[in-house]
Design a protein around this nucleic acid. Sequence first.
RNA 1: GCCUUGGUGGCGGAAUUGGUAGACGCGCUGGAUUCAAAAUCCAGUGAUUGCAAGAUCGUGUGGGUUCGAUUCCCACCCAAGGUACCA
Length: 1117
Amino acid sequence: MQYNFNEIEAKWQKYWSDNQIFKAENISDKPKFYVLDMFPYPSGAGLHVGHPLGYIASDIYARYKRHKGFNVLHPQGYDSFGLPAEQYAIQTGQHPAKTTQENIKTYRRQLDQIGFSFDWSREVRTSSPEYYKWTQWIFIQLFESYYCNDTDQARPISELVEVFNLEGNYKINAAADDDIEIFTAQVWKDYSDKQQQEVLAKYRLTFLSETEVNWCPQLGTVLANDEIVNGVSERGGHPVVRKKMKQWSMRITAYAQRLLDGLERIDWPQPLKDSQTNWIGRSQGAMVSFDVLQNNSAKAKTAKKPSYKELEELKKIRLDFSKAEGLLWEKLRKKKGSTKYRRKYTLGDYVTDFVCVAKKTIIEISGKEDENERISFFEKKGFNMVQLSEKEILENINSVISKIDIAIQFPKFAKKKESEALVFNDKTHKINVFTTRPDTIFGVSFMTLAPEHELVAKIVTDEQKEKINNYIEATAKRSERERMADVKTISGEFTGAYAMHPFNGKKIPIWIGDYVLASYGTGAVMAVPCGDQRDYDFAKHFDIEIPNIFQDIDISEHACEDKSAVIANSDFISGMPAKKAIKRMVFELEEKGIGKGKINYRLRDAVFSRQRYWGEPFPVYYKEGMPQMIDAKYLPIRLPEVEKYLPTKDGKPPLGNATTWAWCTKTSKIVDNDKINHTSVFPLELNTMPGWAGSSWYFNRYMDANNSEALASKEALDYWQDVDLYIGGSEHATGHLLYSRFWQKFLFDKGVVPVDEYAKKLINQGMILGTSAFVYRWDFKNADESGKAKKIIFVGKDLMEKIIKERSSIENSKGNFDSEHFDLLNASLAKKDVSKNEWSQFTPIHADVSLVNASNELDVEGFKNHPLNKDYKDAEFILENGKYIVGREVEKMSKSKYNVVNPDDICADYGADTLRLYEMFLGPLEQAKPWNTAGITGVQGFLKKLWKLYIVNDSFSVSDKKPTKEELKTLHKTIKKVDEDIANFSFNTSVSSFMIAVNELTAQKCNKRAILEPLAVLISPYAPHIAEELWNQLGNKESVSTAKFPIFEAKYLIESTKTYPISFNGKMRFTIELSLELSKEEIEKAVMTHEKTQQQLAGRTPKKVIVVPGKIVNIVG
RNA sequence: GCCUUGGUGGCGGAAUUGGUAGACGCGCUGGAUUCAAAAUCCAGUGAUUGCAAGAUCGUGUGGGUUCGAUUCCCACCCAAGGUACCA
């Protein structure tokens, strides 16, 4: 009875599908477990052997968890919107829905033949209207929400409108655009409807904004930065222009901090967490505003502040908190942003109780001796005072808080200072900078603006104008990418203008330089050459002063970026360590009204529009140019049919080709474009959503995939909660895996989903790489004298290397050539005196791996006749010893490299179980590894051996005899190992332990049911088909997937003796077997009296004998 | 540059808290079976040296801690991935 894998596998795959064996229920007494794969994009090329790696691992885990008594959700679906289908549609005119459908069919067939235990009743496709209905619904929810920084969550935009109507926006602390004006309720009410909408857009979590994009007119689309090479499109080489376009954006920046914080609570790989952390790029520092001097003159410094020492003295005066103070602080400390409070802060010579610097308000508890002096001092400084008694705080804290809230509505603003007469007073003449080191402000010796900075044109002096314009022109020619790539060249130009130092009033020259990027921070830096290497290099290059503000630090060679350096020469912060100085400086900046503490993120808001056809349409129409959401009850808004999938002639996205793409507000239906009247029928949005829209929430849909009332029912979401194990590639680190966390947090805020991190544990499977084969085309001009068409010559790898090394080797290796080839070559070479360069040039060409055998030998005729090698039909192949040996290189598996190995072939030749085991056996799951079919016979041999254990005299038979101690030991050793391996995702080692078990049982000639039945269950997560067949042959009626996993029992592994390694000075020399019951002394005695020990010692007396019972004996001396 | 991960036979890779380095598989060598081959089975296989018993070396490099280090510490080298004038 042969192991006929093809027959067995087909049989059980049909059984699983017919009986819906792996369907998960949403109601169960069992504990839940959710195992998720990153769903594939169904490409036309089908699956290659690299794709299933992660799916096999998750399938093993899912099957194991079922054996362990869990209700397992293990779904699969398709991320079926995307560019390749659209491009194929442009080329062939075929509807992307059609090709997508066909590709999905291929994927499904390929997945089924590997025997995955997916619950296909929950399949999702992002391109199906039933699914994208809910993608559109989420978009509407985002539009209708803003992010409240006080409660740290998304809130309905309607709440914002209510507040605006009552009291304007001065109190609002929300994530929003930077350019928001403060307005009162009256101003708000006086706004037109359109103006109000424009204001609200600045708060919404998704909003239309003018974004500068790379527009390629020929391709009719926006290109990402990495799609542009040397200023032209990577595809086609068309020119690209910077263009402002109205685009939908997602305010992911509102969630920056929570996206960082959440990483601490999830078990994801460290490198992936790190790349998200870097991508978000949090840096804490301060915004500082510098005034620009009007007439290039400066006045001496402003009044002196108390020194650090004096402040330390003042600190001692600070009293312990009273009960009332403590109570009040508990309430105040939670306020953030512009209503943030500090306690016990020093102002002048006084220590305040509480102060809100941004609103210029001091809160004091009455009853201090020097109360009158304090009040007059603070008021002179421009502060608003709130006096409270201990009693009223303790009795009614809530009324106290509302009293404070009212008071801060009317902050007094500081009077203009005399020095301001020297500087420009309008807002536009301020240079705002972000710095992580506000403590180094006394080290500022120049400022640098990005060349694109809008202030440059306003401040440049007439003398410098020409130079500046030339510089700006020169940098504009270089793309941002080029500028970033070229770090070495230092360039810049002086504007002729000066800023004023806010603390010592010194003149600071203003430069422009392309090391400052317009897109980060404010596009301007305060340059501190002693504390920043780039500023240092710039200062050295242009011979600008480098003041030293660090105590006992030498800055003659390079800048000091070390935060442990103590600040010096810096007025009131001299002598402070950096950390303290930063705090103090932030306070001073806020107090002066010229800056504030700020956390800056590298993360940008995500552009959410694409000028494509094959994506989710927006549920949006336009009324007077303002976007309007279509009511959710009319969803889905289905993708319209178009004639052509290209952009329109006038540069509109492909949906501009649709003739039925207008929204009628009366009938709530999509109607023909010619009905557009802008009163009841309006044009619909022409952009579509990007690829990451549908994949940002699909894991929730699986919980209740066929629900038409909600994205999933509350019960289903509450039952399944989150993904317990998520397996997929690390290439999605800063794309899908970040955006999906953002949407999950949003949906959590809205109360739609019960958890704000959707995947507890994530594993990145390593990529399976292809082993490409290369043939080498000799580029030496081998035309004959008459100049007849040259023959294309291919040279094997070894010969190529020889030729590159030295020309004479051709002569030496004459024996390797057939004479015809040799004469041809020799004739070419002999003709003229060719340089080494000329004849040692080769171009490697990919050869299809299916034409190469295991010994790297090329099927030359096959190569010549390969449909893709038409150019080489008549090429000459120079053989060595009658063979052509290809070169090998490990590369990413891809169609264009001809190194793709199809799982269909492997399944047909070796079986799905072998494929599953072999992919796991290749190495650790998380590691990248090249595919190499060489070892697969070993795994198949193992399955054959396993099969044979159950066969006696060519028929299936097991004995009911009692198993021996040894047999039980083998079984339980394996159970233990497999349990541990699955817990550690170390699937490669459990395949080894199966091999060991089968080898041992074969040696033991074990044919007993008591061993072989549990063994079948043990192996079923890995090789489910053979396990199912064996289980069935053993007489079981139910699927093996319903069987309980064998329980490990330690008693079978208990040993009475141990083979002790005996080492001398740490080197193992021999072993002796001793009872485990022996004491340390008895072991030592047994070892020391052993003849081999005496032999080793050769008469010496050991200095020390180390005995670790159960482990080792080491004799020193 | 910075961050992360890794570096072990001819190859893929094992080695749980420091305790017999190289499990398991491939490949290779020899043998059995066979008319022959495939398939299967048995034995051997880190390097050097030796007839052998054995000896010496050996987990990227150099140090250290320890009775004992692939494992812990320090410095460095190399490779892969991510990221980059981020102020």
